[in-house]
Simulated scan of single mutants.
Amino acid sequence: MTRRLLVIGHDYLETAGSIEGRFAERGYAIESVRVVPADRIDDPGVDFDFPDPREYDAVLVLGARWSSYSDTVASWVKPETELLRSADEAGVPVFGICFGGQMLAQAHGGSVAASPVPEIGPSVVAGVPAVAGVWTQWHSDRFTPPHDATVVGANGAAPQAFVLRRNLAVQFHPEVDADNVQGWLDDGGVEDARSRGFDPDVVIEHVRSLDADIPARAAALVDYFLDEVATS
């Protein structure tokens, strides 16, 4: 039987890119939901009925432009937190990216807070082979992993990846390429980057230099999740 992957997106600019592509190559049928529609970006406190994670073989949780602890998104962060806990209790593997990784931390006893060192653009991560290397980042929050998690990636700015049972959380964006980041820049990211001391022109050119390697590196990360984390 075909395995099913639930992809949870939070706003219209988030895409699963090469990560989703590798799941498809590994035999997963992709089913996607989007929490906040484009016309509610400025008022994201929507009510959303999440699917039952127990009906899927894995869950992929993508990034978002909001903080997981913000009251403006509490209406759907709370039920999404319950989804993550239900998946964990049922042994359904969950892969969380950036906001998704922060949600995993928050759901399982860790925490999320504003980072004193925001990361925008590529940065180096040390860790297990599938995690180590240069990854594109865009976050001003960071997670503190749950006490019983194993940190498998980090740098000087923040913990970058952890494993907890069948959950993998990463702080970086393995799924995006330069076109995705350009979309972020065009949607207010230029001002955000500059306000945090980053040159958007330098950021996009640095990201573009990584594009050729993204599919292979994303595939290796998905393989690590499926072959090592999801089977633990």
Rank of each mutant, 00 (worst) to 15 (best):
S140L: 12
A38W: 14
V112K: 11
V35T: 13
V176F: 12
N155C: 09
Y28T: 05
L168R: 02
V36R: 04
Q102M: 14
V170P: 01
F23A: 07
I97L: 11
S209V: 06
D47M: 10
S70Q: 12
G183H: 01
T2C: 05
L226W: 00
S140K: 11
G189E: 04
E205T: 08
W76R: 03
V46M: 02
D141G: 07
D211H: 04
V77W: 04
Y12W: 15
R3H: 12
V59P: 01
V59Y: 01
V36E: 06
A132W: 03
V46D: 01
V207Q: 11
H139G: 10
D177K: 02
E175S: 03
V35C: 13
S70I: 02
D199G: 07
V131F: 06
R85E: 11
G121V: 12
P116N: 09
G91K: 00
S123Y: 10
W135Q: 02
S75H: 10
A230S: 01
H108N: 11
C98R: 00
V92L: 07
V131P: 11
S70C: 03
P200E: 03
G63P: 06
I30Y: 14
D223M: 10
V229N: 00
E20I: 06
A74K: 12
G110E: 04
V207K: 08
A114H: 09
P44M: 05
S18T: 15
F198I: 06
E20G: 13
V203N: 04
A16P: 15
D177H: 01
I97F: 12
G21I: 11
Q171F: 02
R166V: 00
A220N: 09
V77S: 11
V229K: 00
N155K: 10
F143Y: 08
S140C: 12
D179P: 02
G21E: 14
V92C: 08
I120Y: 14
G9M: 07
A58Y: 01
P159T: 05
F23Y: 11
R26E: 00
V163T: 06
F48S: 10
G133K: 09
C98N: 00
D52A: 08
E14M: 13
L84K: 11
A169Y: 04
G17I: 12
I204E: 07
G189N: 04
